[in-house]
Write a protein that binds this DNA or RNA. Sequence first.
DNA 1: TCCAAAACAGGTCAATCGTCCTGTTTATAA
DNA 2: TTATAAACAGGACGATTGACCTGTTTTGGA
Lengths: 199, 199
Amino acid sequence: MAKRPSKRTNDPEGLRRRILDIAAELFQSRGYHATSMHDIQAEAGVTGGALHHHFATKKALGMAVIKERVFRQVEETWIQPVQAAKSAAEGIRTVFKGTIAELDQRGRVLGCPVNNLAIELSLADADFRQALHGVFQAWRDAIAQKLRDERNKDVDPEALATFVVATFSGALALAKTEQDTAPIRACAKQLAQALPIRR
Amino acid sequence: MAKRPSKRTNDPEGLRRRILDIAAELFQSRGYHATSMHDIQAEAGVTGGALHHHFATKKALGMAVIKERVFRQVEETWIQPVQAAKSAAEGIRTVFKGTIAELDQRGRVLGCPVNNLAIELSLADADFRQALHGVFQAWRDAIAQKLRDERNKDVDPEALATFVVATFSGALALAKTEQDTAPIRACAKQLAQALPIRR
DNA sequence: TCCAAAACAGGTCAATCGTCCTGTTTATAA
DNA sequence: TTATAAACAGGACGATTGACCTGTTTTGGA
């Protein structure tokens, strides 16, 4: 018995994931306000009904992007590598090197996903600010914890972790404006001198 | 003879300056895309005709804000103080300290004006990117030149200057998201250790 | 005094924004 | 099978956006 050619197959999780992926991509490359719901609709290939079904408002979509995409990116590119490294300094160096290599390979520098949204949305909405603050905090905490484990009395773990996060975010902002990884390389070099236990 | 009560007094330069001031303020606190021409019109107390007469497009207004306001802010808060300081390290420390004091006094942290616009506009428009790149360059050059004057063989002036600019921008982004100057203080402390000739 | 250009007033315009509506199809459990 | 809710289609909605237009007033040089 031949199956009637179904016109549609419901896949709520897959659709939701596709919308989130596209939204995260567009929010990073164009910014939140410069990306319209229609853009996301067209780019993801979904109808307005489907988009509204999964995310009733643009803010809900933005919050989901932060909590389910941006946070995960920070976990993957920073938190896990730092935890897995044999020392904080080693982990930080590795992440910088990896970032530079990845961006050199790709054409464009889009900047730091957390920082991009943080700057555009922190003052616009309290919920956005809190969510982004949480991402920064987790990022910083992972580095601080690694530094704490090393029990180096010359090191202030919290301050140094904040310093690393700030420098990375700033370096990517400069690289974005310059469309070149040179600023990141300069910061990686200078930061290496400021990190403990050179080896 | 009593003067006829004139309904209007033309003051093109004053009006232009007022529009630029308001636009710079709104672009910094709300962002470029989140600020409408109507917002600027209302906030500056000018008519649509006057606004359009001085700035035909929003982009033209944005470019003028970058070149005539943001650039000037960087000159005043960074370039001049660094040039006037007895050493680069001393100048950098002074600017950080001044920024912290100013922000602690004020309620809100709006972030770095250059960085705010750079992140939102660098990928959106080539002219914006170039203009903002120029501001970053002037900022960095001033610090690099001061470092070069000191002829310290252990210091790479360009790299260290980039490092300082990145750290400052990133620190203000963190402070903006946290609405607290703590990240800037942490960065100032860590940066001081990385600067040459501690005194 | 006269006149051309600049400065400004006040509103219109199509396009686009985010939201939401009604209807249809698909999946799920009884 | 049947009922019920979730998933999705496709557009409509009023509000707002940036641009710009015509008309009036002011200004400064001839």
